[in-house]
Design a protein around this nucleic acid. Structure first.
Ligand SMILES: [Zn+2]
Ligand SMILES: [Zn+2]
Length: 817
DNA sequence: AGCACGCCGACT
DNA sequence: GTCGGCGTGCTC
């Protein structure tokens, strides 16, 4: 009898593949384990077993697996189910989901290495130039990688040369598999058991009079043992005895000491756990009770609490309850909100029960977190993480909290799977019959709509913690101010007075400048030319920190030119104002105060962000200018004034969510003001103070905003009334993209009629030398999602078989944000 | 996604 | 005439 397995490979192919295994392997392998398999000519991948069976493939011979990689499944049945859901719903392959879901260390991939052929003799003179170069390099290096060979011969296509050398028996090639996860091993030391008896030990010490250093080490070992019964690390002993590794080595060699190894986790919490959690305020407690009550009838609850209302404490109470029931908890946050501030706050509550899962952690740390969740270790009972944390192997999930649920960064944009972590979390919760709390001060329209429709529970917390008042928000009409000449640079007199007042009181100020649309570009005053990216359809933006012009899309950069590239004029200006411009103006307006800037530039580097935050917290910075980054959950106590430099560029963004997002962003930024007793002040500069959204922002009218916006969504056929799927065609040839997307749109229109928009070029139509063109399909509520997707897939398949369109990549984005 | 096979321009 | 460019198609 022969045995087979079906596997998922971490590549964008729709099929599962079948490999052959022997009887022993069949008895051992289970779905969720990894095997190393050869795929194609030589490449080796880690594949994930989905099924063990005995049905031989009919039309091909299945290859044998290389070897088994796991002793037990690393992926649970629930996860495989979730992967299936994601690949169906978001229209991508399971391989793509696998790639996104598994920590990098689980995805081994082989690399071809070149070795010299020791056995054969050959005539060096028969080698061609490039062949000889490789041969020569192998005399000095035991192995070469493909990349190194490319460097040696100075060209990209090196496979023919390598092939010739194999034929001439000069070299051999091998597939090297990267070492996967490396457990961290710590060396410990203890006294050899021979000397546990008192007299043996005394004899030993007597004989050691001529080795004072070794004797000293032993004495320190005894002291350490006396202090606590825990194992003693080699490093610890070296340090306390002020000795060296050599001395220890000698003692081990003499069999006086024994060295032993223990595997340990890289991330360990050592702090104290504050026993008593913070007392909830009356209103917080009421919200907590309401959420619990809502869970009796509904699985998902929207927790709408204004900024600074203390939502986190309510979450903490809910988490504690889940912990008591021995359930696992997942706490999802947007990446930017996952600050050290918040992590240490939660650590005080949950101590070592808290695990952080974050892309900035090393691959090994992530594997450890994965394993701890999988084995239900208590140290991973509460997991806090950004969107990818939904992929962890929970076995007993009881509660998911999605904080700042309105944030669009929960949606992965590129590459596939283009999933929304909030929506996927709800599906995940359903598998475990777990409860979900969606928290936000400014819920997404979709979420609030679901709550209004009674699909989700709704709990509101309208008071700030400690009865701090909501900030006082005022709109400043800069159109009038410009006309009346009451503007200084980008500052209205109102805003300047506000800043002066705050600084006089020793309070801090935050100024918000939207990132989008206001990157500083260089423009020639003579001919109007501004330098463009050669690969993308955008102007290069000026970065003063390196005096460079850069492209945001492809990373292309050049030194800041001294004269216009078109007309050689030296009269160049930087146009558009970003945070840098504001910072510069502030330095002139307030020379006696420290100005800080928080944007992509100043927060780069591992601790860049934290550094600037703590400077602000410590009062080292008086005025902070920043982008979006400022709006996220940071708790600055001493900020009394928040200024929004220009609200209009937010509102005018060409996207059906622009108004909703502007409201959310402005409310969040405004929420940074006056978090303690004194009422905070917010000034919003705009050319259009009568704009409905701005009016609603100024009076904290979320529900007014909701009513207006939901009406517009309804009228213009947008979510939550219609689902949308965006289809993008990509190719380096402009005409081919045009024709291809026209064909696609026409085919879609044949089925979906007026519910197809486009094709249309996006604002930036060329990125990395690829033209993009979008089609949007709107799906009305009665229309079957699955059938719609089937149609899209079918049309896509026909599309692929058309010769003229070959090479055009089609990207499908479900629930495009 | 890789990676091989296969067909056309430009350099020894 | 070969070398190397990339378009086409398959991978258990
Ligand atoms: Zn010019
Ligand atoms: Zn570019």
């Amino acid at each position: 009898m022969s045995y087979f397995i079906n596997v998922i490979l971490p590549i964008p192919l729709d099929k599962e593949f079948t490999y052959s295994i022997n009887k022993t392997e069949a008895a051992f392998l289970q779905p969720g384990m990894r095997v190393a398999v050869q795929f194609g000519k030589s490449k080796i991948y880690a594949a994930l077993v989905t099924k063990v069976h005995q049905n031989p493939p009919l039309v091909y011979e299945a290859k044998e697996i290389e070897h088994i990689l796991d002793e037990s499944p690393i992926v649970t049945q629930h996860q495989l189910e979730l992967w299936s859901w994601i690949s169906n719903y978001y229209m991508c392959t399971k391989g793509e989901v696998m790639r996104a879901a598994l920590p990098g260390a689980f995805l081994l991939e082989s690399e071809t290495i070149i070795l010299k052929n020791e056995k054969s003799l050959f005539d060096e003179s028969l080698l061609k130039d490039d062949e000889f170069l490789i041969y020569e390099a192998l005399q000095y290096q035991s192995l070469l990688r493909i990349q190194e060979v490319m460097n040696i011969v100075g060209k990209k296509n090196v496979l023919p040369v390598i092939k010739r050398l194999i034929e001439k028996e000069v070299i051999t090639v091998q597939e090297e598999i990267y070492e996967q996860y490396k457990p961290k091993i710590v060396r410990y030391i203890r006294l050899n058991t021979t000397y546990t008896k008192e007299e043996a030990l005394r004899d030993l010490l007597d004989t050691m009079t001529r080795a004072p250093k070794q004797r000293k080490v032993l004495m320190h070992l005894f002291t350490l043992q006396a202090q606590a019964t825990k194992p003693i690390k080699v490093n610890e002993l070296i340090k306390t005895s002020n000795s060296s590794a050599a001395v220890i080595r000698a003692l081990v060699d003499k069999n006086i000491l024994d060295e032993y190894h223990l595997q340990t986790d890289r991330v360990q919490y050592t702090g104290e756990v504050t026993e008593n959690t913070k007392q909830l305020s009356e209103y917080q407690h009421k919200a907590y009770e309401e959420i619990k009550h809502s869970f009796e009838t509904k699985d998902v609850c929207l927790f709408h609490g204004v900024t600074s209302s203390g939502k986190t404490e309510v979450y903490v109470k809910l988490i504690e309850q889940a912990i008591q029931k021995e359930e696992q908890v997942l706490y999802l946050l947007p990446e930017i909100a996952l600050t050290t501030q918040l992590i240490s706050r939660l650590q005080e509550y949950f101590g070592e029960k808290l695990t952080v899962y974050h892309s900035k952690y090393s691959v090994n740390e992530r594997v450890e977190a994965w394993n701890n969740v999988k084995t239900k270790k208590s140290k991973a009972q509460v997991v806090i993480g950004a969107r990818s944390a939904i992929f962890l192997p929970f076995t007993n999930l009881g509660l998911i909290i999605v904080d700042e649920e309105h944030e669009n960064t929960f949606k992965q944009y590129d590459p596939a799977p283009r999933y929304h972590a909030r929506d996927t979390a709800i599906v995940l919760a359903k598998m475990f019959c777990a409860k979900v709390v969606l928290g936000s001060a400014t819920p997404a329209l979709e979420t609030y709509y679901n709550a209004r429709q009674k699909k989700y529970g709704l709990v509101q917390l309208t008071r700030r913690y400690g009865d701090v008042l909501m900030p006082d928000i005022n709109l400043v009409d800069i159109k009038t101010k410009y006309r009346k000449k009451e503007m200084t640079g980008h500052f209205s007199d109102t805003l300047l007075t506000g800043i002066h007042d705050a600084l006089k009181e020793g309070e801090q100020v935050i100024l918000f400048q939207n990132r989008r649309g206001y990157s500083p570009v260089v423009e020639c005053n003579t001919c109007g030319h501004s330098p463009q990216c050669p690969n993308c359809d955008v102007s290069l933006t000026f970065h003063s920190y390196r005096n460079q012009l850069r492209c945001h899309y492809c990373g292309y950069h050049i030194a800041m030119p001294q004269k216009c590239m078109a007309c050689d004029s030296v009269d160049l200006t930087t146009k558009g104002f970003g945070t840098e411009q504001i910072e510069k103006e502030l330095q002139e307006l307030f020379p006696d105060h420290n100005i800080g800037r928080m944007d992509q530039d100043t927060t780069r580097g591992k601790h860049g962000y934290e550094k600037i935050i703590s400077r602000f917290e410590e009062g080292d910075i008086d005025i902070m200018v920043g982008t979006q980054m400022l709006s996220k959950g940071l708790d600055f106590r001493n900020v009394s004034l928040v200024g929004i430099m220009n609200a209009d560029n937010l509102l005018n963004f060409p996207d059906f969510r622009a108004h909703e997002r502007s409201f959310q962003l402005m409310q969040q930024v405004a929420g940074r003001a006056g978090r303690t007793k004194k009422r905070g002040k917010v000034l919003i500069q705009t050319y259009n103070p009568f704009h409905q959204i701005l009016q609603q922002v100024s009076v904290n009218d979320y529900s007014g905003m909701f009513t207006d916006q939901i009406e517009e969504r309804h009228q213009y056929k947008y979510p939550p009334f219609y689902k949308i799927i965006k289809i993008t065609g990509k190719h380096k040839d402009y005409n081919r993209v045009n024709e291809a997307t026209n064909w696609l749109a026409k085919s879609f229109r044949n089925v979906f009629n007026e519910n197809v928009l486009g094709p249309e070029f996006p604002p930036v139509s060329r990125i990395r030398n690829q033209y993009h063109k979008n089609i949007v399909i709107k799906i009305p509520q009665g229309q079957s999602l699955n059938k719609t997707k089937e149609v899209i897939k079918k049309i896509n398949t026909s599309f692929k078989s058309i010769k003229e369109f070959s090479g055009v990549r089609v990207i499908i984005n479900v629930d495009n944000y």
